[in-house]
Simulated scan of single mutants.
Amino acid sequence: MERTWCDLAAKLSFADLVAAGDYLLCWEDPKTTVERLKDAVDQYTSQRGRAVLPVALAALCPRSRSRPESLLRVALVASPLPDPIPNFGVHLVLSRRNIEIDLAYPKYKVGLEYQGDHHREEVGQWRRDVKRGNDAVDEGWSMLYFTGDDTKDLAELLTRVERRLRQRGWRDGC
């Protein structure tokens, strides 16, 4: 599987290569390790995609839970905006529970949440998502929700993230 990930470097965009690697490393059900991927990169002999592999390897994050989260994280890290923290744990005092925010800026209390189709198709999931979002807002978080359609125009989504961050006090370079 590590070799297959290396082979994908010749076929996928950088962001999709990182998303595939994130999937392989996801802490909830890891398929491999960073060390095994690094060994595969070191031993990879093909020149097709070879140059991008070390850069993609450095960009991997085992805290990502989905391709859309990874795509947005890669775009945010490449932008002048601050880097988000994937699946950031937050203790909500008012509702007395712990949640994880898909991509978070704790300093500014800005949270980004991906809503896949299963979030709207599964009634229980949808209700939990609405309650969790409202609970986070009650404690001062500004939540921004995005769907698969939003990942088709990441520039627009980055503009929205920047606007939220600026509303919360972020300034370039801060």
Rank of each mutant, 00 (worst) to 15 (best):
L71A: 07
W5A: 03
A75N: 04
E121Y: 00
D138H: 08
S13I: 04
A19E: 13
A15C: 03
L165E: 10
Q115K: 11
P62L: 11
Y23T: 13
G173V: 09
S95V: 01
R128L: 04
V137W: 04
R164N: 14
L37A: 03
T151G: 06
Q125H: 07
C26M: 12
R48Y: 15
S79P: 07
T4N: 08
D135K: 05
T45R: 15
G21W: 10
Y108P: 00
E156R: 14
V110Q: 05
V18D: 02
E69G: 02
E113N: 07
G21K: 03
P84D: 02
W141I: 05
V55W: 09
I101F: 01
P68Y: 00
D102G: 03
R36F: 02
D138S: 09
V74S: 04
W27L: 11
V123W: 07
P54M: 06
V110P: 04
L103T: 06
G49R: 12
P84N: 01
P82W: 01
D83G: 06
L53R: 07
V55F: 10
P80I: 02
A155C: 07
A51G: 12
L37G: 01
D102C: 06
G89R: 13
K11D: 14
V130G: 00
M143V: 15
W170D: 06
R163P: 00
S79I: 10
A56S: 08
L25N: 01
V34M: 12
R63C: 07
W126Q: 10
K11H: 13
V74F: 01
R160S: 11
L157T: 15
V55T: 15
T33R: 02
K107V: 11
R160G: 00
A10P: 12
R67T: 15
G21H: 04
V74I: 08
V52Q: 14
A51P: 02
Y105E: 05
Q47A: 14
Y145T: 11
T151K: 09
W126F: 11
A136G: 07
R120S: 09
L144N: 05
S64D: 12
V77W: 08
D135N: 10
E122M: 05
G21N: 03
W170H: 05
Y44F: 15
D42P: 00
S64L: 05
D172F: 08
L60A: 03
V52H: 05
L57N: 09
L57Y: 07
H119L: 01
S13M: 06
D22S: 10
E28T: 11
Q115R: 12
Q47W: 15
N134P: 01
N98Q: 05
T4C: 09
G148E: 13
Y23P: 00
N98S: 11
L12T: 02
E2A: 08
S13F: 03
A75S: 11
T159W: 10
I85N: 00
D129N: 11
P30Q: 06
E28K: 12
G169P: 13
G173A: 06
S64K: 03
R50H: 15
D39N: 13
L72P: 13
A10T: 04
R67Q: 15
T159N: 12
C61I: 00
R36M: 09
Y108W: 15
